[in-house]
Write a protein that binds this DNA or RNA. Structure first.
Length: 108
DNA sequence: AAGATGACGCCCG
DNA sequence: CCGGGCGCCATCT
């Protein structure tokens, strides 16, 4: 399950970002933003696949990561060329638009 | 099975 | 704009 979230997060291109809610919806689990969190947490612990966790933000482009991790995330994003609006990420510029990938409906 | 946890999201004050 | 509270959903103990 969290695998879906991680897969979606991995699809976020460099220089772009997405919110937990977006990732959840794009993963086919709308409303399961918390599962994205859980997935990223689990990924950071067990999995250590190149999951661009830093490209995942809270609604409005707010960094929800506490402590140094949050600073780290900001640095990484800036390093990728993500535009910032003060402490917030400029979603209007770097907000990644998912191809609407409903995991249940590959048909289209 | 019930209770607790979480890097959330949105409404209200 | 910020803080607080409640709801959501999957997983773990």
């Amino acid at each position: 399950m969290f695998h879906d979230m991680l897969a979606t997060v991995r699809r976020i291109p460099k220089g772009k970002v997405a919110t937990y809610g977006e990732v959840a919806a794009a993963s086919g689990h709308p409303g399961a933003a918390r599962q994205v969190v859980w997935a990223l947490r689990a990924a950071g612990k067990s999995g250590r696949r190149p999951v661009p966790w830093h490209r995942v933000l809270g609604a409005g482009g707010k960094i929800r990561l506490p402590g140094e991790a949050g600073l780290e995330q900001r640095l990484l994003l800036r390093a990728e060329g993500v535009g910032f609006k003060g402490d917030r990420v400029d979603m209007a510029l770097c907000g990644h638009s998912f191809p609407a990938a409903p995991a249940q409906s590959p048909l289209n």
